[in-house]
């Protein structure tokens, strides 16, 4: 897997601090992935499932966060992101 990230403002959520992401494998979106948000102490905060487009979104506070993705077949991806107040951080995840 690999991660890459960039800032991608979304007018719908202007002003919100959020991590948004898309999960793909071999170029195809992966739905139903368990996406976990961990805080800077690696404590579990919440979990969502990726949607049909492989997308997910977490509203967070500014700071350091970890994203852990789990899928059947022992597929696992993890990375750390740092986000500023009011930023919408776009994260691409590839199994």
């Amino acid at each position: 897997m690999s991660f890459s990230s960039c800032v991608s403002p979304d007018p719908q959520y202007k002003g919100e601090t959020a991590i948004i992401g898309t999960i793909k494998k071999d170029g195809e979106a992966v739905a139903g992935v368990f996406v976990q948000l961990l805080d800077s102490h690696r404590a579990f905060v919440g979990e969502v499932r990726s949607d049909k487009q492989g997308g997910f979104r977490f509203f967070v506070g500014p700071g350091d966060w970890r994203i852990v993705c789990l899928a059947p077949g022992d597929q696992r991806a993890e990375d750390q992101v740092t986000i500023a107040q009011g930023e919408e951080l776009d994260v691409d995840i590839r199994f």
Binding site: L37, D39, A43, V45, G46, F58, F59, V60, G61
Partner: peptide
């Protein structure tokens, strides 16, 4: 709750309204 809720920094889990 999370440390941020406990300290009073946040009012709810970080991923929720």
């Amino acid at each position: 709750r999370s440390p941020d809720e406990f300290s009073g920094k946040l009012a709810a889990p970080a991923h929720l309204p």
